[in-house]
Nucleic acid binder design. Structure first.
Length: 556
DNA sequence: GGTGTAATAT
DNA sequence: AATATTACAC
């Protein structure tokens, strides 16, 4: 075959660079089509002469991924011959004439589509789909092992439309148009349900032979509305991939990461073989069917359930996906980390801006709730773990410092998760991997370990607690001093951690100085706890009477 | 129309 | 509980 599934796997900007053989007697038509194709970044080789075209193809069949061949009264025989010769090449016929017999014969001989002139840009844009179709439907030898299950799943996906026998969706792989075609069919209830979109992978070409010959009707189901970005992303995963380049989803690292749709219940029903669990997951909260796909996924291949199945896909923010997210945020920097940009960087199929926004919101909230405290503590607490630790059970520096105006490269400090082989439930995805798992609720809504202590209300250390366990408020230190889990977190400190270390020592000195000499003004950077905070805290601890003179350290 | 946030729904 | 959705302000 000219283009195999394996070829497509490494094709990053697909369908850009698609090599098109274009044959047309009419030079003006030729030029017009060529310019349209080239505008789509297709590589076009034009021919006015059949012989030249044939010889060019014969000399190097690999030069072309797809052909667009004009049929006219004079070259019909040649066309038939060409179709026989180039069976593996997806050949699209075009013509001004409208002879059903000719069309049927072309199709029967393997032409993938018959387009009536003039060719619209949409029609031309979607010629890549035939390449994909051929790549995936050219016989077992031409299909890579990894793709076979996917390919096999396509048939039951599409067959119900023809045979009215609803299968259970396990995996689907589809092109943009395939899903859009379904959507189109469903929403518009056109009478063409029997036929898959002509520009999409099809079960059998014979179905097209049943057509009345009006290619226009089913030539291209990608309407303008569909090809444009419409605001369906919040409701449908499928609709988020706006352009063709983004919509070829073949299992391949270079391709944008795919998302798996799974059902929350009944997951046992799902063929485990069909699901790549390392992929991000999207759960269809509507019908709870797990569907894994190499690309856009929907929970059911059934037309009747399509609408419901495409309602709400919950994104499962797996560690990998979250890592990707974090990486994107880091790349952009805090200032630039907005949902749309993050989404771009993440290059994750099926993920919508809304998904990212939602996650970003959560992410920011978490940072905001956790980190300011950390920052405060970092500023105000002695570093020496032998001295003070209010949070003996929790590594409060689960996150690196978060600066709104100066992004810190988190992964460089704390490689997020770092559990490539899945994510046990107890892994705290928002924290570094080298700490004992927290209860998620604790990580989200930090509460002091000791109910009596409200460190938030206290701007400075006032009630020293003996250090328990090996944890310090400063994970680097804790793990460096007491590396209980074998992860060398302390050594993974970034280059500037040395400066950080020095800064902390200085701060320690300042804090100690301030505590030992409470009569002196507080140095910059240290602030007093509010009176309300002090009183509230004292009252929480059952201290209602404040003696005129305090023993021990005091800021008053 | 995108973004951020909080509240609310699923 | 996690995520999506919504409403609102900017």
């Amino acid at each position: 075959m000219v283009c195999t599934a394996n070829d497509l796997e490494g094709w990053k900007d697909f369908p850009k660079g698609l090599r098109v053989l274009l044959l047309d007697k009419d030079t003006s038509s030729l030029a017009e089509i060529r310019s349209k194709l080239e505008a789509m970044d297709y590589i076009v080789t034009t021919f006015c002469n059949e012989t030249e075209a044939l010889s060019a193809f014969s000399c190097n069949p690999e030069s072309f991924h797809v052909a667009i061949v004009e049929v006219n009264a004079s070259n019909v025989d040649w066309v038939f011959q060409f179709l026989e010769t180039a069976k593996d090449l997806p050949i699209i016929m075009t013509s001004n004439i409208h002879c059903l017999n000719t069309m049927m014969k072309c199709i029967a001989l393997g032409a993938v589509e018959f387009l009536r002139k003039p060719l619209s840009e949409d029609k031309l844009r979607n010629i890549w789909q035939h390449v994909v179709h051929k790549a995936f439907n050219t016989g077992e030898k031409g299909v890579s092992e990894s793709v076979k299950p996917v390919k096999e799943s396509i048939v039951p996906m599409l067959q119900p439309k023809l045979e009215n026998k609803p299968p259970k969706c396990k995996i689907s792989i589809e092109t943009e148009n395939a899903s859009r075609a379904l959507e189109h069919d469903h929403e518009q209830s056109t009478g063409s349900d029997k036929y898959p979109a002509p520009s999409t992978p099809q079960i059998k070409q014979g179905s097209r032979l049943l057509d009345d010959g009006d290619c226009q009707d089913h030539t291209n189901c990608l309407s303008e509305k569909e090809s444009g970005e419409h605001d369906g992303e919040s409701k449908s995963v499928e609709t988020t991939c706006g352009n063709a380049e983004d919509t070829l989803h073949i299992s391949e690292p270079q391709m944008p990461e795919k998302i798996v749709v799974k059902q929350e219940k009944d997951s046992a029903d799902v063929s485990k073989n069909d699901i790549n669990l390392s992929q991000p997951l999207i759960r269809d909260s509507t019908n709870d069917t797990v569907c894994a796909t190499e690309n856009l996924t929907k929970a059911s291949g059934l037309n009747h359930s399509y609408k419901s199945s495409r309602k709400k896909m919950k994104v499962d923010w797996t560690p990998e996906l979250h890592k990707k997210f974090v990486h994107a945020v880091e790349q952009l920097g805090v200032d630039q980390a907005i949902p749309s940009r993050i989404l771009e960087l993440m290059k994750t199929e099926g993920l919508t801006r809304h998904n990212v926004a939602s996650h970003l919101q959560k992410y920011r909230m978490h940072k905001r709730h956790i980190l300011p405290k950390d920052e405060d503590r970092r500023l105000l607490h002695p570093r020496d773990p032998t001295q003070i630790s209010y949070y003996p059970h929790k590594p409060i520096m689960a996150f690196p410092p978060y600066h709104y105006n100066n992004a810190v490269s988190m992964p460089s400090i704390y490689p997020m998760w770092g559990q490539p082989t899945g994510h046990p439930a107890n892994i705290q995805m928002w924290g570094p991997p080298s700490y004992p798992p927290w209860q998620p609720s604790e990580s989200w809504h930090w509460k002091p370990s000791y109910p009596g202590l409200h460190a938030d209300a206290w701007g400075c250390p006032v009630i020293p607690q003996p250090l328990q366990g090996g944890y310090s408020p400063y994970p680097q230190i804790a793990s460096g001093l007491n590396n209980t889990n074998g992860v060398d977190n302390g050594c993974s400190m970034p280059r500037d951690s040395f400066e950080l270390h020095l800064a902390e020592e200085i701060i320690d000195k300042v804090v100690k100085e301030a505590m030992s000499k409470p009569w002196l003004p507080l140095p910059l950077g240290l602030k007093l706890p509010s009176t309300e905070g002090v009183l509230a805290e004292l009252s929480r601890q059952g201290i209602c009477n404040i003696p005129p003179q305090n023993n021990g350290p005091s800021f008053h």
